Simulated scan of single mutants.
Amino acid sequence: MTDLSQLEAELSARIDAAADTGALEAVRVAALGKSGQVSELLKSLGGLSPEARREQGPLINGLRDRITTRIAGRKATLEAVELDAQLAAGRLDLSLPPRPRRKGAVHPTMQVMDEMVAIFAEMGFAVAEGPDIEDDFHNFTALNFPPKHPAREMHDTFFLQAGAEGERKVLRTHTSPVQVRVMQKTNQKPAAPWIATGQDPPIRVIVPGRTYRSDSDATHTPMFHQVEGLVIDRAIHMGHLRWTLDAFIARYFETSAVETRFRPHHFPFTEPSAEMDVRCDRSGSEIRIGQGSDWMEIVGCGMVHPNVLRNCGLDPDEWQGFAFGFGVDRLGALKYGMPDLRDMFAADTRWLAHYGFSPFAMPNPATGLS
């Protein structure tokens, strides 16, 4: 039989001499592995006589236990040394700035829409909302569109497949159908206290939301955003409309030097109809509102057509009013210098990082919004 005392001394010396956990693992395998020295001694017990087995078995098992304990102690020591070395080598320099973290931003369209809602709210306008998918009556017929109007054609409007009753609904081409729903006195429960629903005159609402038309270029997109306004009361006239729009434009563009003009136009749902131009300066890389000698169309408007009032159940001999519609994306491009409206819908985070707004910024003194 092998001299167990000598074997233990040799293995202990090798364990103590192991410089790292890798070398120690090699000693463990050589001693206690499947073919290790101690493991071979344990296997040899089967060939001994019962008397010799009773004598040698406890000695060999004791050797195995002592070597196992010694290896575990040496491993703990080596691991502590290696951990200290790793911590020293990977020491953090807390004087360096942290890696930049990606931050979200408020989209310019939502920022502009919030600004517009805040300005009109100060004038006493409530907010009205309605569905993006409309029927023919609310989107066209109630608004005095004739049967063969181009907006009713596929090349201008996104139509859905016909339903069971044969009616083709549309993605609304403007937010004016919500004005119809308000005038119809639907008596629906509002989604929130500030959301206007059907009501009796006098009415003063704005309608922000998405709209859809089959058009795409640098100044038009298939989906865009509008804020339309509606005022219904007695003795309302174009002077009230002019003041409302002038006051909004001055507040939105943060300038008192606003000069506007009306140009005759045609909209099926207003009579008379007009487009409002604002004086501006186009001589440089920026468009400056309230300066220069150029004019730029900024909003469509007019007095609500008597037929629209009748279609909504109001007597045009008693009630009259005005309506207007702003393109939210276009107003944002004018105020914040964005050259192509299509970029607003390109889902490019670099663009949003450049033009987006921090939700934690200081409030704008003109609108009270950040």
Rank of each mutant, 00 (worst) to 15 (best):
E10N: 14
R14W: 05
A19G: 11
D20F: 04
E25T: 13
R28M: 03
L32V: 02
E40T: 14
A52D: 13
R53Y: 08
G57S: 15
P58W: 05
L59Y: 05
L63Y: 07
R64Y: 01
D65F: 12
R74H: 05
T77L: 13
T77Q: 12
A80N: 12
V81Y: 10
R91F: 09
R99T: 12
G104F: 03
H107N: 09
I119H: 00
M123D: 13
I133L: 15
E134C: 09
T141C: 05
L143K: 02
H149C: 03
H149P: 02
R152L: 12
M154S: 05
D156C: 10
F158Y: 13
L160F: 08
E165T: 14
V170N: 02
R172P: 03
H174D: 11
V178I: 15
Q184F: 04
N187Q: 08
W194K: 10
W194I: 11
A196S: 14
T197N: 10
T197H: 08
G198L: 03
P201F: 09
R210E: 07
S214E: 12
S216N: 15
H225N: 07
H225C: 03
V227Y: 07
I232K: 03
D233I: 02
M238P: 01
W243R: 11
T244A: 13
L245R: 00
D246C: 04
R251E: 07
R251M: 02
F253V: 10
A257F: 02
V258I: 15
R261H: 07
F262C: 01
F267S: 02
T270K: 00
M276C: 10
D277C: 06
V278I: 12
D281P: 09
R282P: 00
G284W: 10
E286A: 14
R288D: 06
Q291N: 06
Q291W: 07
E297Q: 12
V299P: 05
M303I: 12
H305W: 02
H305I: 09
H305C: 08
P306A: 09
N311K: 04
D315P: 04
D315Q: 08
G321Y: 03
G325F: 07
G327N: 05
D329K: 01
R330D: 03
L331V: 09
L334E: 03
G337C: 04
M338C: 08
R342G: 06
R342Y: 10
A353D: 15
H354F: 13
H354R: 15
G356L: 03
P359V: 11
M362H: 13
